[in-house]
């Protein structure tokens, strides 16, 4: 199968899904992301990224139970898959290996 690629924003969302393990849904991801990035993110952008990650097979989802909050709407929780973890690992190792190639002389 063709190697699935991943965009920068998608990578951030995927990292959040992994970090918030089992508690990752739209609003929690938004809050976490806005905290870390310290800039505004629109919720619908996160929704779209999650849908894409799901069709690419990097996350799976399940519905939470109905509560009185949220106008009676269920939360949709996302969990990272093995494929998702592998993509994160690949990206991480690629970045690290490139980072280590930076010669020391440049910024002394």
């Amino acid at each position: 199968m063709k190697e699935q690629s991943i965009g920068e924003f998608e990578e951030l969302v995927l990292l959040n899904v992994a970090a918030l393990h089992d508690e990752a849904y739209g609003v929690s991801i938004l809050e976490n992301l806005e905290n870390k990035l310290s800039k505004k993110v629109n919720i619908s952008a996160i929704h779209v990224a999650l849908k894409r990650l799901e069709t690419k097979g990097f996350v799976t989802s399940r519905f939470g139970g109905i509560t009185g909050d949220r106008g009676g709407r269920r939360k949709k929780f996302y969990v990272i898959t093995a494929a998702g973890k592998k993509v994160l690992d690949d990206v991480y190792s690629l970045r690290t290996s490139l980072y280590q190639q930076i010669p020391n002389i440049s910024f002394n």
Binding site: G26, I43, F63, D69, R70, R73, R74
Partner: peptide
Amino acid sequence: DFIDEIEGDLIELFEM
């Protein structure tokens, strides 16, 4: 199939 997630998240944000 998306309405629960989107509407729920939006309402939660609104309440906050």
